[in-house]
Design a protein around this nucleic acid. Structure first.
Ligand SMILES: [Mn+2]
Ligand SMILES: [Mn+2]
Ligand SMILES: [Zn+2]
Ligand SMILES: [Zn+2]
Lengths: 140, 140
DNA sequence: AGACAATTGCAACAATGTTGCATTTATCTT
DNA sequence: AAGATAAATGCAACATTGTTGCAATTGTCT
């Protein structure tokens, strides 16, 4: 819920501004990670004009508060999605059709975190991307 | 070894060109992932002038042949490293000092791949990034 | 309603990534 | 060793993505 994220923001002393609500709405509606300029485009079609700088700053904030995730999805530029699911996020990126599917697994997460801790690293969150073929594209 | 990568290239019908050898050399020397423009800069300091377009195309090729990896390392732009270790690559990115440490774990890899396959996805390779604090920065 | 700090938008810029095409180069053949 | 050939490079021009400083605006609290 956008409401929950807003509440988290305010609890940490951040303002519940129009741009932040709008970005959160778009992120929530999107079933896959999207780029800052995607978000701007979607909002523009709704007559909501938001400066791209503000979107970048909003996404930075959301990621800093662990409310959202960043990923690269094969290309080399930023995509973000809400940090809705429990545990870490894993993305399966189809190299043929570009589809992005998400799944989470708490157990795997724990194992990964433990391995990192064994090396002295203190994990706050993590991100995993699989590259290959989705079932549809594999058939062909 | 650069030689091995070159051999793989040729085996697949790609030419062993000067730019490709140079990029491979830089990747091999670097203990952490670096960006295309980093590579160009390093080569320039050695008096080797390589066009950035060529570097992008070389990195694309290396990743396509699974000789190298792409990652985003917290920011939103491309970094690459040689795909030297066995199994999938995991990177620990310190959010304080920016240090990037790498580790691999075949067993974990297998589990992850199995989980993806259960969802109908056929993984070719994958990439994992942990964000948190390295031991040094955690002390402070 | 007014004060105040946080946030936004703007402008200008910097960095990153892409495309088409002429020139060059690696490889294979002769 | 020279020539033929396709692949790869470099160049130029452009497009997209990301950053910074600062003045204007807005949300929150009193
Ligand atoms: Mn996560
Ligand atoms: Mn790998
Ligand atoms: Zn697909
Ligand atoms: Zn550190």
């Amino acid at each position: 819920m956008v409401q929950d994220s807003i509440q988290t923001l305010q609890a940490q002393g951040y303002k519940a501004t129009r741009p932040r609500k709008l970005v959160l709405e778009v992120l929530e509606e999107s079933e896959k990670p999207i780029s800052p300029y995607d978000i701007q485009g979607i909002l523009r079609t709704r007559g909501k004009q938001i400066n791209h700088v503000t979107i970048y700053r909003t996404l930075d904030l959301l990621c800093r508060l662990n409310l959202a995730h960043k990923m690269m999805s094969g290309g080399g530029f930023l995509k973000c999605s809400l940090n809705a699911a429990e545990g870490c996020h894993r993305f399966m990126v189809c190299q043929d059709c570009g589809a992005i599917q998400e799944f989470a697994n708490k157990e795997l997460c724990r194992e990964e975190n433990q391995l990192a801790r064994d090396l002295g690293f203190h994990t706050e969150h993590h991100l995993s991307e699989f590259y290959g073929l989705c079932s549809g594209c594999y058939e062909k």
